[in-house]
Design a protein around this nucleic acid. Structure first.
Lengths: 179, 179
DNA sequence: TATTCCGTACAGTATATACTGTATGGATTT
DNA sequence: AAATCCATACAGTATATACTGTACGGAATA
């Protein structure tokens, strides 16, 4: 049988390893490993954490903690909480991971897809204008093929738009239930 | 009325602008802007392209074209094609964007989620082992709370797994039709 | 077989990103 | 009002990524 100190140490190791995997895979969300590790640290901490505690826990500068926690905060993955008598900022993890998924991830897709849609619509109009005006058959042909390519993109973006909508409206949970 | 040369030039500009937006937003797929721009170039090119043509078109080194086209190729966004009498490698865009979406994007999530699931399962077992063995109440409590956190993660990963499955099996198209 | 041509491995360089330490302004306490 | 404490802006440094040019091995041609 191990003694309590060794066990405590083992627990720490287990945590650290789990957090590392977690953090590494957060890159698919567009979240850097360091930021991911910070999230894991906060997630596994029993109480809300101060910047100094994060700094000590990760052996990284307080400045880094400040910038990284801001990223997590804007992604709604952590929230600042208040405790009486505590002057330092305190952060704890946002516990609805499904909600976080949307804010972190879907929001990114939303803005990208909107930009693409807008660009495609605009390009479509420009090409149609050329088709209307030109007398040159070569130009006409080029514009026509380009237009078909842009329209294909538009169709795809529209599909993506609907997918994103599925998550934004939480309709997705009708198809795949929260666990 | 513009003359044909000016119109051609305008067409070029329109293309370039559209491709730029496209490329920039491809970063949500985890594809760099340069690689995205290369894809756009190939997509809008009327014939399959050689590395030299890409190099000339983007004013970038052939080495870059080689590495970047490899990325696109592995993501199934372009394919190498053969033409009689042509010694150079020829690449053209993969026209099923919905399929590409899966290979580029969902595959990334698949491996990340699998890694997370595996890690969580493994951690769960380790913690349960400690719970079984320990005589220290402090250790027991810590392990128990960590376990509940890991289990929460497991639930979430299971949900993600189902989402990914939806795309892999193309069942998603029952809910959101291809355009 | 000798020559040419092609794609890419590799090493070096430039650019971008991540991280740190110091400085500062604002808030709280004394 | 003075002193203390806190988060963060900013500038500088280190690391990682992206890009280029050269060199080379293999395939096609002569």
């Amino acid at each position: 049988m191990k003694d309590a100190d060794t066990e405590q140490h083992t627990l720490e190791e287990i945590r650290t390893r789990f957090i590392s995997v977690m953090a590494k895979n957060m890159e698919v969300y567009g979240i850097s490993e360091t930021v991911g590790r910070l999230y894991g640290t906060v997630y596994f901490h029993d109480q809300p954490m101060t910047l100094d505690e994060m700094s000590a826990s990760l052996c990284m500068s307080k400045t880094s903690m400040s910038t990284n926690i801001k990223i997590l905060s804007e992604a709604n993955m952590v929230e600042r909480v208040w405790q009486k008598g505590v002057r330092k900022d305190l952060y704890q993890d946002e516990d609805d991971w499904y909600k976080s998924f949307t804010t972190v991830f879907i929001d990114r897709w939303r803005s990208a897809t909107n930009a693409n849609l807008e660009s495609a619509e605009h390009t479509k109009k420009e090409l149609q204008a050329i088709l209307d005006k030109t007398n040159d058959s070569m130009v006409y042909e080029k514009a026509a093929t380009d237009l078909s390519r842009v329209e294909k993109a538009l169709d795809y973006y529209a599909w993506l738009d609907e997918i994103i909508h599925l998550f934004e409206t939480e309709q997705i949970f009708d198809y795949v239930n929260k666990k």
